[in-house]
């Protein structure tokens, strides 16, 4: 017996060693990024990472000398609206495909599925022209309107809606609810986990979108954070590493805190969406 215990202890030590090693590998970019954000650029450039000149100067610079807060605000507005729009439109179309019967349903569903195969990156030229014709360039709506709905979201929610128990719907029928009521009072509450997953997915998607906003934003009034960070680097002059690291930290720290707090919730939500 003692032999087996010993082996277990050794195995656990090995496991911890591996766990710690991998954690270090994954976290190194963060440590370096966040640590250097407290150092003066001159020290960073010399490779003097162990400098003791720690200060918040870079953060103050980032907040006062760059429109980073405006970028953050813009991004939050665009991502939030996109998220709610996805929740609304995707759940509605998913409802239609699950609970309604209509002509060419298969055909329309196939259309949705085909959309998932068409990369939005391939549509940038005509979409730019459409948005321009609608007069939306350089406004939030240029980023929101083309992505008000999502075929993937519809597909995901359809898979989830299909597993709504029969009894619920029967009860609703007995109560004489119409489709709007069933949608709002039965289907949506029952599938809230999937909705939250889609919401998180859509929010992150909008938060991370990079190519389209470059094309349709022309000023700091509408520029989003992903593109904004690029502005801090400049064309013919060189830049201030300390401040750039600080602005990256400003963006990443809140998101990571939110993730830490909601981690467990996210995990089950994500997995739900993944396999259903």
């Amino acid at each position: 017996m003692a032999n087996i215990d010993e082996r277990n202890v050794l195995k656990n030590i090995f496991s911890y060693f591996l766990l710690i090693l991998l954690a270090v590998v994954i976290l190194v970019p963060f440590f370096i990024g966040i640590w250097t954000s407290f150092l003066p650029t001159a020290d960073i450039l010399k490779g003097n990472y162990f400098s003791t000149n720690i200060s918040l100067t870079n953060y103050i610079d980032a907040f006062t000398n760059t429109p980073i807060l405006r970028y953050l605000g813009n991004t939050i507005v665009v991502a939030t609206i996109t998220m709610f729009a996805h929740l609304l439109f995707c759940s509605m179309s998913a409802y239609a495909f699950v609970f309604l019967d209509f002509k060419y349903k298969k055909f329309f569903f196939a259309l949705f599925m085909i959309t998932m195969m068409l990369p939005s990156e391939a549509a940038i030229i005509p979409n730019f022209q459409t948005v321009k014709a609608l007069g939306l360039l350089d406004h939030y709506s240029a980023m929101i309107v083309p992505s008000l709905t999502s075929a993937f979201g519809t597909f995901m929610l359809r898979q989830s809606f299909m597993q709504t128990p029969k009894e619920l719907k029967e009860a609703a029928d007995i109560e004489g609810l119409n489709h709007f009521q069933i949608f709002w009072k039965v289907v949506l509450p029952y599938n809230r986990i999937s909705l939250i997953t889609l919401g998180a997915y859509s929010f992150l998607g909008a938060w991370n979108s990079y190519l389209w906003p470059i094309l349709v934003t022309f000023s700091n009034n509408s520029r989003v954070i992903q593109n904004g960070l690029k502005q801090l680097q400049s064309e013919e002059t060189f830049n201030n590493w300390g401040m750039i690291q600080a602005s990256a930290a400003i963006i990443v720290i809140p998101t990571i805190l939110v993730l830490f707090i909601g981690q467990h919730y996210f995990k089950s939500g994500l997995n739900e969406g993944a396999v259903k």
Binding site: M92, L100, F112, S120, A123, A151
Partner: peptide, 30 residues
């Protein structure tokens, strides 16, 4: 159902048509 379907699936279908299908054909044309 037909009426409801147009309300429920209509907006998404319209948006996808305008911002996914139309641009595909337009890109092909260009």
């Amino acid at each position: 159902d037909k009426y409801y379907a147009s309300i429920f699936a209509g907006p998404s279908l319209f948006l996808l048509g305008l911002f996914v299908f139309y641009p595909m054909f337009r890109t092909l044309y260009i």
